[in-house]
Protein backbone atom coordinates (compact mmCIF):
# COMPACT_ATOMS: atom_id res chain seq x y z
CA UNK A 1 0.00 0.00 0.00
CA UNK A 2 2.63 2.48 1.11
CA UNK A 3 0.09 5.16 2.00
CA UNK A 4 1.00 7.23 5.04
CA UNK A 5 -1.61 9.40 6.61
CA UNK A 6 -0.80 13.08 6.39
CA UNK A 7 -3.44 15.51 7.44
CA UNK A 8 -1.41 18.68 6.74
CA UNK A 9 -3.00 19.35 3.36
CA UNK A 10 -6.47 18.80 4.71
CA UNK A 11 -5.84 21.09 7.70
CA UNK A 12 -4.78 23.81 5.30
CA UNK A 13 -8.18 23.50 3.64
CA UNK A 14 -10.03 23.01 6.89
CA UNK A 15 -11.56 26.51 6.69
CA UNK A 16 -13.08 25.52 3.38
CA UNK A 17 -14.65 22.44 4.97
CA UNK A 18 -16.01 24.50 7.85
CA UNK A 19 -17.49 27.00 5.41
CA UNK A 20 -19.04 24.07 3.60
CA UNK A 21 -20.46 22.74 6.87
CA UNK A 22 -21.89 26.16 7.68
CA UNK A 23 -23.63 26.24 4.31
CA UNK A 24 -24.91 22.67 4.86
CA UNK A 25 -26.42 23.73 8.17
CA UNK A 26 -27.93 26.85 6.63
CA UNK A 27 -29.48 24.81 3.80
CA UNK A 28 -30.91 22.34 6.32
CA UNK A 29 -32.19 25.07 8.61
CA UNK A 30 -33.96 26.98 5.83
CA UNK A 31 -35.43 23.88 4.22
CA UNK A 32 -36.62 22.30 7.46
CA UNK A 33 -38.23 25.52 8.66
CA UNK A 34 -40.27 25.82 5.47
CA UNK A 35 -40.75 22.06 5.43
CA UNK A 36 -42.12 22.08 8.98
CA UNK A 37 -44.78 24.61 8.00
CA UNK A 38 -45.71 22.53 4.94
CA UNK A 39 -45.58 19.36 7.02
CA UNK A 40 -47.83 20.69 9.78
CA UNK A 41 -50.38 21.93 7.27
CA UNK A 42 -50.23 18.64 5.37
CA UNK A 43 -50.58 16.64 8.60
CA UNK A 44 -53.83 18.41 9.46
CA UNK A 45 -55.03 17.73 5.90
CA UNK A 46 -54.05 14.05 6.22
CA UNK A 47 -56.21 13.53 9.31
CA UNK A 48 -59.04 15.66 7.96
CA UNK A 49 -62.39 14.05 7.29
CA UNK A 50 -62.72 16.20 4.18
CA UNK A 51 -61.58 14.24 1.12
CA UNK A 52 -60.67 17.43 -0.79
CA UNK A 53 -58.07 18.18 1.85
CA UNK A 54 -57.01 14.62 2.56
CA UNK A 55 -56.50 13.19 -0.91
CA UNK A 56 -54.16 15.81 -2.41
CA UNK A 57 -52.12 15.72 0.79
CA UNK A 58 -51.91 11.93 0.55
CA UNK A 59 -50.81 12.09 -3.08
CA UNK A 60 -48.14 14.69 -2.29
CA UNK A 61 -46.69 12.58 0.53
CA UNK A 62 -46.79 9.37 -1.51
CA UNK A 63 -45.07 10.92 -4.52
CA UNK A 64 -42.29 12.56 -2.52
CA UNK A 65 -41.67 9.50 -0.35
CA UNK A 66 -41.30 7.22 -3.34
CA UNK A 67 -39.07 9.40 -5.50
CA UNK A 68 -35.29 9.59 -5.00
CA UNK A 69 -34.31 13.01 -3.69
CA UNK A 70 -31.49 13.26 -6.21
CA UNK A 71 -34.03 13.03 -9.03
CA UNK A 72 -36.08 15.77 -7.38
CA UNK A 73 -33.01 17.98 -6.96
CA UNK A 74 -31.97 17.58 -10.60
CA UNK A 75 -35.54 17.98 -11.81
CA UNK A 76 -36.01 21.30 -10.00
CA UNK A 77 -32.67 22.69 -11.07
CA UNK A 78 -32.40 21.45 -14.66
CA UNK A 79 -35.94 20.72 -15.83
CA UNK A 80 -38.18 23.32 -14.23
CA UNK A 81 -36.45 26.25 -16.00
CA UNK A 82 -37.97 24.78 -19.19
CA UNK A 83 -41.30 25.79 -17.73
CA UNK A 84 -39.95 29.24 -16.89
CA UNK A 85 -39.39 28.44 -13.22
CA UNK A 86 -35.78 29.46 -12.82
CA UNK A 87 -33.98 29.56 -9.46
CA UNK A 88 -30.37 29.93 -8.38
CA UNK A 89 -28.53 26.79 -7.22
CA UNK A 90 -29.02 27.42 -3.52
CA UNK A 91 -32.64 28.57 -3.77
CA UNK A 92 -33.45 25.66 -6.04
CA UNK A 93 -31.97 23.18 -3.57
CA UNK A 94 -33.67 24.72 -0.54
CA UNK A 95 -36.95 24.69 -2.43
CA UNK A 96 -36.55 20.98 -3.22
CA UNK A 97 -35.41 19.99 0.24
CA UNK A 98 -38.26 21.98 1.80
CA UNK A 99 -40.84 20.13 -0.32
CA UNK A 100 -39.09 16.87 0.46
CA UNK A 101 -38.96 17.61 4.23
CA UNK A 102 -42.60 18.62 4.14
CA UNK A 103 -43.69 15.12 3.16
CA UNK A 104 -41.57 13.36 5.77
CA UNK A 105 -42.42 15.82 8.53
CA UNK A 106 -46.11 15.50 7.62
CA UNK A 107 -45.89 11.80 8.44
CA UNK A 108 -44.16 12.57 11.73
CA UNK A 109 -46.74 15.17 12.72
CA UNK A 110 -49.63 13.01 11.58
CA UNK A 111 -48.50 10.19 13.89
CA UNK A 112 -48.22 12.76 16.69
CA UNK A 113 -51.71 14.12 16.10
CA UNK A 114 -53.18 10.63 16.07
CA UNK A 115 -51.48 9.82 19.37
CA UNK A 116 -53.49 12.47 21.22
CA UNK A 117 -56.57 11.05 22.93
CA UNK A 118 -59.90 12.42 21.63
CA UNK A 119 -60.94 13.05 25.22
CA UNK A 120 -58.68 16.12 25.33
CA UNK A 121 -60.48 17.76 22.43
CA UNK A 122 -63.78 16.99 24.09
CA UNK A 123 -62.53 18.39 27.39
CA UNK A 124 -61.51 21.55 25.55
CA UNK A 125 -64.93 21.85 23.93
CA UNK A 126 -66.54 21.25 27.32
CA UNK A 127 -64.84 24.27 28.87
CA UNK A 128 -65.90 26.36 25.89
CA UNK A 129 -62.72 26.65 23.80
CA UNK A 130 -63.11 27.10 20.08
CA UNK A 131 -61.77 24.53 17.63
CA UNK A 132 -58.82 26.81 16.76
CA UNK A 133 -58.01 27.42 20.44
CA UNK A 134 -58.08 23.69 21.09
CA UNK A 135 -55.71 23.00 18.18
CA UNK A 136 -53.23 25.71 19.09
CA UNK A 137 -53.25 25.57 22.89
CA UNK A 138 -53.82 21.87 23.56
CA UNK A 139 -53.30 19.61 20.56
CA UNK A 140 -50.29 21.24 18.88
CA UNK A 141 -48.11 21.61 22.02
CA UNK A 142 -48.82 18.04 23.10
CA UNK A 143 -48.24 16.75 19.59
CA UNK A 144 -44.92 18.56 19.43
CA UNK A 145 -43.73 16.89 22.67
CA UNK A 146 -44.89 13.48 21.49
CA UNK A 147 -43.08 13.68 18.16
CA UNK A 148 -39.74 15.00 19.42
CA UNK A 149 -37.91 11.65 19.23
CA UNK A 150 -38.99 10.89 15.66
CA UNK A 151 -38.67 14.57 14.73
CA UNK A 152 -35.06 14.38 15.88
CA UNK A 153 -34.18 11.48 13.61
CA UNK A 154 -36.04 13.04 10.67
CA UNK A 155 -34.20 16.34 11.10
CA UNK A 156 -30.85 14.55 11.26
CA UNK A 157 -31.63 12.59 8.14
CA UNK A 158 -32.69 15.78 6.34
CA UNK A 159 -29.45 17.44 7.41
CA UNK A 160 -27.52 14.56 5.84
CA UNK A 161 -29.55 14.98 2.65
CA UNK A 162 -28.03 18.43 2.17
CA UNK A 163 -25.00 16.54 0.83
CA UNK A 164 -26.99 16.08 -2.38
CA UNK A 165 -26.61 19.78 -3.10
CA UNK A 166 -23.10 18.80 -4.22
CA UNK A 167 -24.73 17.28 -7.30
CA UNK A 168 -25.70 20.75 -8.54
CA UNK A 169 -22.37 22.27 -7.39
CA UNK A 170 -23.62 24.05 -4.29
CA UNK A 171 -20.39 24.51 -2.28
CA UNK A 172 -21.52 22.71 0.87
CA UNK A 173 -19.46 20.22 2.88
CA UNK A 174 -19.55 17.24 0.51
CA UNK A 175 -18.79 19.42 -2.51
CA UNK A 176 -15.80 21.00 -0.74
CA UNK A 177 -14.56 17.61 0.42
CA UNK A 178 -14.66 16.28 -3.11
CA UNK A 179 -12.84 19.35 -4.36
CA UNK A 180 -10.08 18.99 -1.75
CA UNK A 181 -9.88 15.29 -2.55
CA UNK A 182 -9.26 16.00 -6.21
CA UNK A 183 -6.86 18.90 -5.61
CA UNK A 184 -4.67 17.44 -2.85
CA UNK A 185 -4.96 13.69 -3.49
CA UNK A 186 -5.07 13.27 0.32
CA UNK A 187 -8.02 10.99 -0.31
CA UNK A 188 -8.32 9.09 2.96
CA UNK A 189 -7.66 12.11 5.17
CA UNK A 190 -10.23 14.21 3.34
CA UNK A 191 -13.02 11.69 3.69
CA UNK A 192 -12.17 10.87 7.30
CA UNK A 193 -12.34 14.55 8.21
CA UNK A 194 -15.50 15.16 6.17
CA UNK A 195 -17.38 12.19 7.63
CA UNK A 196 -16.24 13.13 11.14
CA UNK A 197 -17.64 16.62 10.62
CA UNK A 198 -20.97 15.11 9.60
CA UNK A 199 -20.98 12.59 12.45
CA UNK A 200 -20.11 15.23 15.04
CA UNK A 201 -22.75 17.63 13.72
CA UNK A 202 -25.36 14.86 13.78
CA UNK A 203 -24.48 13.97 17.38
CA UNK A 204 -24.72 17.62 18.40
CA UNK A 205 -28.11 17.90 16.69
CA UNK A 206 -29.25 14.73 18.46
CA UNK A 207 -28.00 16.04 21.81
CA UNK A 208 -29.79 19.36 21.28
CA UNK A 209 -33.03 17.58 20.48
CA UNK A 210 -32.66 15.38 23.57
CA UNK A 211 -32.06 18.48 25.69
CA UNK A 212 -35.18 20.06 24.22
CA UNK A 213 -37.08 16.87 24.97
CA UNK A 214 -35.98 16.97 28.62
CA UNK A 215 -36.76 20.67 28.83
CA UNK A 216 -40.29 20.18 27.51
CA UNK A 217 -41.02 16.90 29.21
CA UNK A 218 -44.06 16.94 31.46
CA UNK A 219 -43.14 16.12 35.06
CA UNK A 220 -44.61 12.86 36.28
Amino acid sequence: MGYTLNFAAVWRSFDLLLEGLALSLALAFGAILIGAAIGLFTAFCLISKNGFARRPAGIYVTIIRNTPILVLVLFTYFALPQLGFRLGKIESFVFTLALYSGAYLAEVFRAGLLSIPVGLREAGLAIGLTEIQIQTSIIAPLMFRNVLPSLSSTIISLFKDTSLAAAIAVPELTFEARKINVETFRVIETWIVASCLYVITCSILAALMRALERRLSVPR
Partner: peptide, 24 residues
Protein backbone atom coordinates in the same frame (compact mmCIF):
# COMPACT_ATOMS: atom_id res chain seq x y z
CA UNK B 1 -23.49 1.96 13.26
CA UNK B 2 -23.34 5.43 14.85
CA UNK B 3 -20.60 6.46 12.45
CA UNK B 4 -22.39 5.10 9.38
CA UNK B 5 -25.71 6.60 10.40
CA UNK B 6 -24.10 9.97 11.03
CA UNK B 7 -22.60 10.12 7.55
CA UNK B 8 -24.61 10.99 4.41
CA UNK B 9 -24.93 8.11 1.96
CA UNK B 10 -23.39 10.26 -0.75
CA UNK B 11 -20.29 10.71 1.41
CA UNK B 12 -20.15 6.93 1.93
CA UNK B 13 -20.40 6.40 -1.82
CA UNK B 14 -17.74 8.97 -2.66
CA UNK B 15 -15.44 7.81 0.15
CA UNK B 16 -15.80 4.19 -0.88
CA UNK B 17 -15.07 5.10 -4.51
CA UNK B 18 -12.01 7.27 -3.84
CA UNK B 19 -10.58 5.68 -0.70
CA UNK B 20 -10.65 2.01 -1.68
CA UNK B 21 -8.67 2.58 -4.87
CA UNK B 22 -6.12 4.64 -2.89
CA UNK B 23 -5.44 1.78 -0.49
CA UNK B 24 -4.94 -0.53 -3.44
Amino acid sequence: TDFIRGTPVLVLVLASYYVLSTIG
